[in-house]
């Protein structure tokens, strides 16, 4: 018996270590871990609660009925308002204080070219022009109303 004593001491050290490990684990691992799978279930709600910046198409219509009606009849009907005007949730919250993006007149040709510049890579039926040849100098909206272009 005396000859095994040192092994018993080793076993005691291991037992204490394992107990400490389990105790620390119980304290450190969050409670929701493992509830839905091998992950922290609370993370799902945390991700759902992240801030939203784009309001979504439906938000614009109630206040901007004219533009909405205009757009719905033309080729830009497939486009959401925020596609050109940028995120508008803050504008929806404080309409007078915060205004969404609107390209300056000098930048309009560049702005519209981002989609409409001719490129072989674009679908052939998609309306495209060569910006440097097409009515140079004139802002696009002079002939093409943005909400209902021809």
């Amino acid at each position: 018996m005396k000859d095994f004593q040192h092994l018993l001491h080793v076993a005691a050290v291991f037992t204490v270590a394992i107990a400490a490990f389990l105790a620390i684990r119980h304290i450190v691992v969050p409670a929701s871990f493992g509830r839905l799978g091998h992950y922290r279930a609370d993370a799902v709600d945390e991700i759902k609660a992240l801030p939203v910046l784009y309001a979504g198409e439906r938000s614009c219509a109630p206040c901007h009925q004219e533009q909405t009606k205009d757009k719905s009849a033309g080729p830009h009907r497939t486009m959401a308002c925020e596609s050109c005007h940028g995120p508008a949730l803050t504008h929806e919250a404080k309409p007078k204080a915060v205004h969404p993006f609107r390209p300056k007149e000098a930048d309009i040709r560049t702005f519209c070219s981002a989609c409409h510049e001719r490129s072989l890579s674009r679908p052939r039926k998609f309306p495209q022009i060569e910006e440097r040849k097409h009515q140079t100098g004139a802002p696009c909206i002079m002939c093409h109303p943005p909400h209902r272009p021809k």
């Binding site: 991700i47 759902k48 609660a49 992240l50 801030p51 939203v52 910046l53 784009y54 979504g56 198409e57 830009h76 497939t78 486009m79 959401a80 925020e82 596609s83 989609c115 998609f126």
Partner: peptide, 23 residues
């Protein structure tokens, strides 16, 4: 990409879907 999980869980579209001009 999270498919804009925070948006789709509220019935909104992912930001990329929202702004795509051609659908």
């Amino acid at each position: 990409c999270t498919l804009c999980y925070h948006r789709i869980s509220r019935g909104l579209r992912p930001a990329c879907v929202e702004v795509c001009p051609t659908g």
